[in-house]
Design a protein around this nucleic acid. Sequence first.
DNA 1: ACTATAAGTAATTGATGAATCACTAACTAG
DNA 2: CTAGTTAGTGATTCATCAATTACTTATAGT
Lengths: 173, 173
Amino acid sequence: MGKSDATSVNRKEEIISAAIEVFAEIGYYRATTAQVAQRAKISQPYIFRFFSTKEALLLAALEVSWTRVIDSFHKVMESGLSEQLEPDLIRAYEDILDSYRNETLLQMQAQTIQEDSIREAMRKGFGEVHRIVLDAFQGAGIPNPQERATMFLARGMLCNISSALDMPELMGK
Amino acid sequence: MGKSDATSVNRKEEIISAAIEVFAEIGYYRATTAQVAQRAKISQPYIFRFFSTKEALLLAALEVSWTRVIDSFHKVMESGLSEQLEPDLIRAYEDILDSYRNETLLQMQAQTIQEDSIREAMRKGFGEVHRIVLDAFQGAGIPNPQERATMFLARGMLCNISSALDMPELMGK
DNA sequence: ACTATAAGTAATTGATGAATCACTAACTAG
DNA sequence: CTAGTTAGTGATTCATCAATTACTTATAGT
């Protein structure tokens, strides 16, 4: 299998990557499957061989984006000293925002989508991240872990907005 | 002029109110002007007597939502003691989230819309709220006002998400 | 009554988009 | 070789929607 080999799994991942870009740039509802297909360099109908609906494609894209955050936080916890735990987590999240801005933009969009399946995916993602951070803070013996976990998430959410609107001043200069 | 009198200004406000509801519930791009019209109990084309485009209607709706927050914060600052300033501002924002949830959902949507005019409106709204909070904290002699203002906004943004996804546990139980 | 203007709508238009269908080309196992 | 499977596309379908047009009804001033 050479690098240009197009396995079914590769195609699926390529489509998801294209969808993350296009959905983030154009907006999920406004973006068309034709635009996603063009970005993925395939024909529009071929998307539906891998995803039964546009919404299924969005769900797959969200799954990728949440896995990104969760895996990153797990890595920090495994390898880090518990004294610098919070700054390490902050840095990890900022790195994701730098490198995978589109995934964050997609998550932000999905926060207000009312379809049950999307809401469930978002609840699961947020819930798991919250649980991980809370466990980490408790395990590290940080005082008021509940409140600190909330403020950690809160800072992250403002960070998202500051990035999305290109307003660095919101994060206190 | 009785209460059922339909002045041009009233109609405009009614349309904006209907748009806030429909856009928040359905999503701006997915919502149709026909749905807004139905909610406002007018015909679909009549919307375009007041707003030249769907986007102009969104801008008007965002204007209303930001004015809501800004006016509320101003009122807190005028009438409140500076010792309880921060909790008063928090309560004021929570009241808005309770009473005007749709306006917040609309703002959340607009955070990721890439059209220049929308981004500009969002920057203006966020910028003004940030300025007000920062001025208030500085005026009240709160230490580290910059950082405290950032954390105030951050908490508000997580509060939005917690409300939108119906996840009260995110705010630390 | 009469005319101007405001309030409002039905019908249409032109464009667009998700999803399906019908098909072709390339590879693979026996 | 050939029968079956995988990869892929062009053309079409059916629905939808923002925006326009052309029209009707009501109101107010003279």
